[in-house]
Amino acid sequence: MEISTKRSKRKRLLTAYSFILPNFLGFFIFTLIPVCFSLFLAFMEWDSFSAPKFVGFQNFIRITKDTTFWISLKNTFLYTVGVVPLTLACSLGLAILLNQKIRGMKLFRTAFFFPYVTSLVAVAVVWNMLFHPSLGPINQFLELIIANPPAWTSSSDWALTAIVIVSVWRGMGYYMILYLAGLQGIPRELYEAASMDGAGRWKQFLNITLPSLRSTTFFVTIMLIINCFKIFDLVQVMTGGGPGRSTNVLVYQIYNEAFVKFNFGYASAIALVLFIIVLSITVFQFKWNQIQERA
């Protein structure tokens, strides 16, 4: 009886492992090995045509003297500072609005979520048409209000702002869904008790809604920051890093160094620096969130 039980347990374990094995194999082949190889290349000079040459920390020394890297880093931070708070505010506002019992609520939720699952290339092309300096409907409308509307993606001063606007518009529907889940988990009794105590909508929002959504906001913020530092596709399609280097971001520079200039070692070094920056920000946020929860 005991032997039969052990065999049955072993069979169940083998069945379970067989289900998760493809995921582990995929992670090992397509994620772990490339990441380890990238760490190895960060200390090498390699153009993919010749054998890798060990150069030590030369790639990292080169980073400190590379003006394009510092411009890309600044643009990445500016993009993050623009996208994160705006997306948080818009997604939370939409979630609160669409958490009400209104007619056609599911249709509205679907409409706001739809941009997130739409082809990003199609989204970027359409927005480029909308942002056209002379023929785009955005500037045609703005000309009724101001004399000289921005040139958007054709202007080094406004191109990054245009990408921020598109990113917020595309992402807020996804994060709205996360906030909706958080809002629906807040007990209605809290609002009823606050209403009986004379608290208005604004006080209920500040003292009930926001504190109850702290964990959701923390998760959304982490995901937003990571995604902002990974921005590439919108930049590639909408501006190509230009005009000049005004929208050149870190991932776009990594792409250029690796697949345009074939400096795979230097590109890997920039990727390692990017990884350290994102990891540092994430760890800081986790520590800050722990301090806030204890307070």
Results as ranks from 00 to 15, higher is better:
V249W: 06
N256G: 14
G265T: 10
F264I: 12
T216H: 07
L210R: 13
L206H: 05
A258T: 05
M223I: 11
N256H: 10
T217Q: 06
L206P: 00
V220T: 04
E257P: 00
Q253E: 11
T217Y: 01
Y266S: 15
V220Q: 00
I254H: 03
N207L: 10
Q253F: 00
T221P: 02
Q253H: 02
V220R: 00
I222V: 15
T247I: 03
S246G: 06
I254S: 07
S215P: 02
R214S: 15
G244Q: 09
G241I: 06
T221L: 10
F219T: 13
L210P: 07
N256L: 12
V249E: 06
L250S: 00
L224C: 04
T209C: 04
T247W: 00
I208G: 11
F218C: 04
S212M: 15
F264T: 13
E257Q: 15
F229H: 10
S246D: 03
S212R: 10
N207Q: 13
I254D: 06
S215V: 08
Y266P: 14
G242L: 13
V237H: 08
C228K: 02
V249K: 11
F229C: 12
G242N: 12
Q253V: 00
K230P: 01
Y266E: 13
F232Y: 15
D233E: 14
F264S: 10
S246Y: 01
P211W: 04
V237K: 09
G241H: 03
G241D: 04
T221Q: 01
D233G: 12
S215L: 07
G242Q: 12
L224S: 02
I254E: 04
S212P: 04
F232G: 13
F264M: 15
N207A: 07
L234S: 07
F229G: 12
N248M: 14
V235H: 12
N248T: 14
V251W: 04
F229M: 11
N256K: 15
S246C: 05
V251H: 05
V220P: 00
N256C: 06
T221W: 00
S212W: 02
T221N: 02
G244R: 08
Q236F: 15
R245S: 10
F218Y: 13
I226K: 12
M238G: 08
F262C: 05
Y252G: 07
Y255R: 06
L234T: 11
I254N: 08
I254A: 12
N263M: 01
F219K: 06
N256W: 04
I226W: 03
A258W: 00
V235R: 14
N207R: 12
T221G: 03
F229D: 10
L224M: 04
Q253M: 09
L213R: 10
F259I: 08
P211C: 06
G265V: 10
V237S: 08
A258F: 01
P243K: 09
G241Y: 01
F262K: 04
S212C: 15
F229I: 13
V235M: 11
F262D: 04
V249Q: 08
L234I: 09
A258C: 07
Q236S: 11
S246I: 04
F262N: 13
S212V: 07
N263C: 00
N207C: 10
L213N: 11
L206G: 00
T209K: 03
M238W: 02
S212K: 09
G240Y: 04
G241K: 05
T216C: 12
T209M: 03
V251A: 11
N227D: 09
G242C: 12
K230W: 01
F262I: 03
G244P: 03
N227W: 03
